[in-house]
Design a protein around this nucleic acid. Structure first.
Length: 241
DNA sequence: AATCGTACCAACCGCTGCTAG
DNA sequence: ACTAGCAGCGGTTGGTACGAT
């Protein structure tokens, strides 16, 4: 297939259905294979992203709760921009969602903080390191942006140095947020998914749209999606596309 | 009603790490 | 040991909705 025929941009409902169907059929691995066999003119990468961020049945949709917000804040103060890792502690939330949330909400906080500081001390620069010496995580994580300011996302290289795992090294360079007890609780409660009274996992739109199709028998599936799927009656082999 | 700015979300891109051959 | 292909991650961008002016 020529590369130029690959589709880009927003997914259609039809594509969603098609992808969900084939993921159910073959599992959420081998995305390039899935992309090909499904007949979708999408890259495997694109399919994976769509599945992970939108179609996955475990996704929780809607606004972040205050508990989630707090958790994100705290986890970010601990791990920096390790979105996927943070997402692991927030069942039903994707790294992309958390990343977007952080970008919008925390940037606003940063702006508010700047205004506040400017109003208190007009001569003080935000890039002054003293601006980051507060124990408030709201301020601590604010990286320098353009023109000698911290990039909003950039955690100042701390994460690279620490490279993830637990901050024994990081403690020397990164302020330790006194959350030990909370982390213990989080670790303990991770399995039970009762970290913050999480509501039952909501079905994704594809499940709402077609709630039974993904767990159908082959026969039911072929009836439901004859355009996507057919069985060769002679040898019961799967015929894609 | 029109315009503008902001918030939010979905999706793409580039890079990295892993793994099978 | 090396390499190619794939999956995953983080950063960024573009589109849309919505509220303020």
């Amino acid at each position: 297939m020529a590369q130029e025929e690959m589709r880009k941009g927003p997914w259609t409902e039809q594509e969603d259905l098609q992808l969900a169907f084939y993921v159910n059929l073959f599992g959420d691995r081998r995305w390039d294979f899935l992309a090909k066999v499904s007949g979708l003119r999408r890259t495997g990468k694109s399919c994976r992203l769509r599945w992970v961020n939108y179609l996955h049945p475990g996704l929780k949709r809607g606004k972040m709760t205050t508990q989630e917000e707090r958790l994100i804040l705290e986890l970010h103060s601990k791990w920096g921009n390790r979105w996927s890792r943070i997402a692991m502690k927030l069942p039903g939330r994707t790294d992309n969602e958390i990343k977007n949330y952080w970008r919008t909400h925390m940037r606003k906080k940063a702006q508010d903080e700047r205004k506040h500081k400017a109003s208190i001390s007009p001569s003080s620069s935000f890039s002054n390191s003293s601006s980051f010496s507060s124990n408030s995580p709201d301020v601590d994580f604010m990286p320098i942006t353009e023109n000698n300011e911290r990039n909003f996302y950039d955690t100042g290289g701390l994460e690279k140095k620490n490279d993830g795992d637990n901050n024994e090294k990081g403690k020397s360079t990164m302020k330790v947020y006194p959350m030990d007890e909370i982390w213990k609780d989080i670790e303990l409660s991770q399995e039970s998914e009762t970290i913050m009274n999480i509501e039952p996992i909501m079905p994704s739109p594809i499940w709402n749209y077609c709630p039974n199709t993904l767990w159908m028998t082959d026969e039911e599936e072929t009836k439901m999606f004859p355009q996507f799927y057919c069985l060769d009656n002679q040898d019961n082999t799967f015929l894609a596309g």
